[in-house]
Amino acid sequence: MSRHVVAPVSEFPPGTRRCVVLEGRRIALFNVGGRYFGLLDRCPHQGGPLSEGVLTGLVEAGAPGDYSFSRPGEILRCPWHGWEFDLATGESRFDPRRHRTRAFRVSAKPAEELRAETVPVRVEEDYVVVET
């Protein structure tokens, strides 16, 4: 596992997203209400750029017509054909086991923890870190 500093927390506010290339792979990063998520930016279907997808919630129904909406902002719909992915796991909604994209751990870390790595960090900041 390696860790990659992406940005100072202050530059990656809630409600924003960005795309980074780490070790040759493009990864889509999201800050949803202060929680960070990362997905491989390539839809397992036809390769659509997930970083351009819309964030929505989980629509379910126990019975026909009985719509419920939960987990707002945590489901990503691919910008092309609309497959839904769980931001936390990368699993598709329609077939979580067989169709999924890779999810990465993304978190905010204090600069001290990152000292050991060869990135210029300032002590007074926390940083968003992706683990690959």
């Binding site: 279907h45 929505t56 629509v59 379910e60 129904a61 126990g62 019975a63 026909p64 017509g65 009985d66 719509y67 719909r77 054909h81 609309g82 497959w83 839904e84 598709s92 909604r93 329609f94 077939d95």
Partner: peptide, 15 residues
């Protein structure tokens, strides 16, 4: 189409 539009008919929880 169901894979992309499942959210329209969420009670259809199998292919």
């Amino acid at each position: 189409y169901w894979r992309g539009l499942r959210m329209e008919i969420p009670w259809v929880d199998r292919s």
